[in-house]
């Protein structure tokens, strides 16, 4: 049995989505054209994950086995609607950037995957920690990918588009654009390259272990 702390930290170590746990690729690829988009999407998913894990684990003995997937999806969809309405009201610009992908959290395999693999078997406290860990890991990954793509593609990072806080990080003129990074093909290429470097690093580590033993 894992300790409560391990339940929380596994989300950004061995089960870090989407790098270690290759799930939820659509939002990862689509919204990471900017740091803000990536973080916003991550936080929205984090909220839905924690709440749906909580409700599903609390109801786990009441939901009949045969209709559990439908029941899980309905619970998740309910929280997605809450996020949708809140974002529309308080962060309309971010809502426009993320577009249809907010509604699509319903079919994000990470959320349904955690319900099926974890929340239906564990108590509420563990499920909340699991959801928080995985959700934070996802937010972090999306933030990193969004940051890399935005810096390379635009040379600057904009946070809070409502307040328009812009940080110029690369010394570039207006004519400069490494546009590929913020365009659709760049999403696939950069995610693929990050996975490659993670694989390379973990293989190096394993190689060291075996050579010492």
């Amino acid at each position: 049995m894992k300790t409560l702390r391990q339940e929380f930290t596994k989300g950004f170590t061995e089960q870090l989505p989407p790098f270690k746990l290759v799930l939820g690729l659509c939002p990862t690829l689509a919204v990471t054209t900017s740091l803000e988009g990536g973080l916003g999407m991550g936080l929205a998913t984090l909220f839905v994950l924690i709440m749906s894990n909580l409700v599903i684990s609390a109801l786990r003995n009441l939901i009949p086995k045969k209709v559990r997937i439908a029941a899980f999806i309905t619970v998740i969809a309910g929280f997605v609607v809450i996020v949708e309405l809140l974002m529309k009201a308080y962060t309309p610009q971010l809502f426009d950037i993320l577009g249809v992908f907010i509604s699509l959290i319903v079919v994000n395999c990470i959320v349904l995957g955690r319900a099926e693999a974890f929340a239906k078997k564990n108590n509420a406290v563990r499920s909340i920690l699991d959801g928080a860990g995985i959700g934070l890991g996802f937010t972090l990954s999306l933030g990193v990918l969004g940051f890399i793509r935005e810096v390379l593609g635009r040379g600057s990072v904009t946070l809070f588009s409502q307040a328009n806080l812009k940080f110029q990080l690369l010394p570039v003129t207006d004519g400069y654009f490494f546009k590929l990074a913020v365009e659709p093909p760049g999403a696939f290429l950069f995610l693929g390259l990050i996975l490659f470097f993670i694989n390379l690093a973990s293989m190096r580590q394993e190689g060291k272990k075996t050579s010492y033993s």
């Binding site: 290759v22 590929l180 365009e183 659709p184 093909p185 760049g186 999403a187 696939f188 290429l189 995610l191 693929g192 390259l193 996975l195 490659f196 470097f197 694989n199 390379l200 293989m203």
Partner: peptide, 22 residues
Amino acid sequence: PKPLRGTSLALITAGLLALTFS
């Protein structure tokens, strides 16, 4: 090459395909 196998190469291939489609 070993580190590229699986999802990594699949994503890079998809990127090149997306580039063609663009």
